[in-house]
Design a protein around this nucleic acid. Structure first.
Lengths: 194, 194
DNA sequence: CCAAAATGATACTAAATCGTATCAAATCGG
DNA sequence: CCGATTTGATACGATTTAGTATCATTTTGG
């Protein structure tokens, strides 16, 4: 019986290297287009590691996505705003959120999640819960403080995020100053509705 | 030299059947997960058709996507609004647009376009031009008639479309009455900003 | 009605790839 | 320091699949 869930120091290091390498490859080409041999060649070690530690290719993919979902928890969760004006508050929240969403890594992640939502449906649902939904709920509490209607939060989120993210996903990202102007427009509009 | 670009009646029929069958399969499983043999088995005829009429699997995929892009030209392009109130106008436009975007076929199409944007980058750009961009421009002319700022068009489009479409893509579509309420909210907010 | 051309069925090649098995090397515990 | 266990390298089997080639069948056009 050589079947043990033992974790040697070396084994852990390999596991780490595998996840990181696999992350880059999966983000770059998608689940199907990356072969197990390719991952091993780039990470070192051998296929034995993958199949003993993650079961199979899908297991590794799941581990990769879970790790990234952690990393991409809505950045607004940690941000604590003092008592600020609604306009200023929404600007800060918006800037913070877009700052993370527009990183190349997050753009690739979002694309990958949508792409694999046929094969792995739960993945997209989970991402949506810990990402957009959470961000919306932060917006909601901020807006409700100024007695705005709760549905404004979703509307604000979508008009803030969609255009810049879509542009980035197409490989035609907006210039930083255009993003800033976009934030201003979105904030102005939602405030006019409070 | 039996290399001719001849189009027999039977040949055209097969071409048609191939495109339609391939459309369903590609929409359902994505480019990579559909094999050429699978398409042929479902469409009738034989692989010869695909490789003589479309060159290779990619050629067939391109034909499928081009056909669908035609089909999914922004439905607002044909719609001619008489002289109506801005509120009524935006409601009609919004309802018409969502009516098309929320069909299962369009949801699958959008998912497929994003999914294959790594392998086929031009595809997403083209879809964006003939779809969202065009819709936004119709919104823009409607809004400018009431002397609203042009950037409101993009904001309105995104807050109208994003939430219902994302929900549908996750397999958790909004109820029809919720969609209608959503349209109302979006229209109300954009009007408050004109 | 018949030859020429197009279409259809199918066998086949070559390559990729997942997962396993086998054996060698490094590492750990006592 | 040594035996047991974990990790590494690699060969291998089995399967899938894109694209080609070959030959039979149907259609077309004169």
């Amino acid at each position: 019986m050589s079947e043990r869930a033992t974790l040697t120091a070396r084994g852990l290091a390999r596991q780490e290297a595998l996840i990181e390498t696999a992350t880059d490859l999966f983000l770059g080409k998608g689940f199907d287009a990356v072969s197990v041999d390719e991952i091993v060649a780039a990470a070192g070690g051998s296929k034995t590691n993958i199949y003993r530690q993650f079961g199979n290719k899908t297991g590794l993919f799941t581990a990769v996505v879970e790790r990234m979902s952690q990393e991409f928890l809505s950045p607004l969760d940690q941000l604590v705003l003092g008592p600020v004006d609604l306009e200023i508050g929404l600007q800060i929240l918006g800037r913070t959120l877009l700052g993370q969403l527009l990183t190349p890594k997050h753009i690739a992640f979002q694309r990958m999640v949508i792409a694999s939502s046929v094969q792995f449906p739960d993945l997209m649902t989970h991402w949506y819960e810990v990402g957009p939904r959470r961000s919306q709920s932060i917006f909601r509490s901020q807006i409700e403080k100024s007695s705005g209607a709760p549905e404004l939060a979703v509307l604000f989120h979508d008009m803030l995020v969609t255009e810049p993210v879509t542009r980035a996903m197409m490989g035609r990202p907006m210039a930083a100053e255009d993003v800033e102007a976009h934030i201003q427009s979105a904030v102005r509009l939602v405030i006019s509705g409070v």
